[in-house]
Amino acid sequence: MLTTKDFIAKCKDQENVTKYYVNFDHATKKVCDLPENDRDDYYDALLRDPKTKSARLAITLGPVVKRHEHYVKKPLRFKNRKNYQSLLTNVQVEIKPRETISVLSNEYLQLDGVTAGIILPRLSLTDVGLTLVSTYIDPHWKGILQMAIVNNTSKPINLNSGEAIGVLFVFELSSEIEERLGDNHSNTSHHYGMNWEKIIETEEEPIPTKKQAAARTTFGSIENWLTEHQNKLYQAVGSVSILCFIYFLAGAVQDIRNFKSDLKSVSEIAQKNQDKLSTSIFTGSQEISLDKNQTVATIKVKINQKVRSNPVILIDSNHTNTGLVIAGNITSKVDQTVKEITFTVRSNNPQPLAQSFQFKWILIP
């Protein structure tokens, strides 16, 4: 393995193609290039930086991330792409529970034929439940670096643009890889040669993918649509409340004798609409188990969710057993608040072996 000092010495060598530099400065929000005229000064300053360790280099979060499971709200989108979130203005990204996002580094790396690298996660992120998926860097590589981050917890976790997310280790091979083999990167790697100038100033796909995700289920489409349009739905309810208030207030002006009665009606309507505004979609993921020779099993889930008069429970399960049904029923409700939901799995035939079934559910108030 090369020490940082030895690797920087390669970068300073004008006859060597090796480079490592910050391609996007999150502080100034500008694309940067390696200052060729002051190359030695740049790398000397890097060595003096207290963040630079003896055998590893920092990898930091770039200003665009790709979400795979959730559409990005329009004000936060990068170039109006529904799966890309821009961190150029709002520098923080919230990684939802169990979510995986694809990210790019601020750093640009170019290697010669005898140098390779590997990116490993930072312990400080792993301690809070975030995992950076380890990845390798081949000889003759050039470009910014693509990685994936997974939130393994049940709580959302925030990351900021420019925050350190991984560490780069470089090492020297026992023999040189031919340059013609390195040229094959452009055919085999979907992000070879990528840099922040291309991403920000052109219509280049920031994080292209070779493998396409499976088609969304009906349940997933409903959940995404409700999540994306929830604020608009609530705003519409609020607008109706305002119109109702104006209507009844005008009636009170016309008939002063019924003013108190009309005012009371307005208050009641406003309260009802406020109750509507206070309800929201509630989702969850559960696991239910059927023991050997068992045909029915139930689990109870405690919640405290305000609903309207006819709430609906939808269930989405990826099991393929046609003789098995999973259903959910509200078993405890106080006034307009659901306190408990009971989920039941039923099988037409006794199970030959104990099995567990995972499913998602959504409570539409």
Rank of each mutant, 00 (worst) to 15 (best):
E107T: 06
Q230N: 13
C11M: 11
N16V: 09
C11A: 11
V22W: 09
L109Y: 07
I364K: 14
N184A: 15
G113W: 08
K10I: 11
L46I: 04
C11H: 10
R180C: 11
A58T: 10
P75G: 04
M1Y: 10
T135P: 09
D44W: 10
C32H: 11
V312G: 11
G129N: 05
S289G: 13
K82I: 14
Y136E: 12
S189C: 04
V167W: 11
N195A: 00
C244L: 14
L233A: 06
K73C: 07
N231W: 03
T283R: 08
M147E: 09
D183A: 04
V93M: 03
Q14N: 14
F169G: 08
A354K: 15
T126D: 11
D40F: 10
F24H: 07
V93Y: 02
V312P: 13
T4V: 03
P75H: 13
K73H: 00
L314T: 12
S356E: 01
L125E: 06
P350E: 03
S102L: 05
V93D: 08
T100E: 02
Q351S: 15
D41L: 12
A354N: 13
N318S: 15
A354Y: 05
N106C: 14
A27G: 03
F248T: 13
N187H: 14
S134E: 05
Q351K: 05
L277F: 05
L173F: 07
Q351M: 05
L226D: 09
I269K: 03
I326R: 06
E268D: 09
K260W: 10
V253L: 12
V253C: 08
D112A: 06
N80V: 01
L168Y: 02
I330P: 05
E223V: 12
A27T: 07
Q294I: 07
S124R: 13
N151V: 06
P97H: 03
N158Q: 13
E197P: 01
I207Y: 12
L226Q: 08
R308F: 10
G220W: 00
A297K: 03
K66P: 00
E268Y: 15
K232Q: 15
M194E: 00
G238R: 10
H26Y: 08
N158I: 11
P139C: 10
I165S: 00
F245D: 15
L109V: 04
Q274Y: 13
K300N: 14
R308C: 14
Y136G: 03
S347R: 00
D275I: 12
I326D: 00
R48P: 01
E15Q: 14
I101C: 03
V64W: 14
V345C: 02
I269G: 05
K29A: 02
S174V: 02
I281T: 09
L168H: 03
V65Y: 06
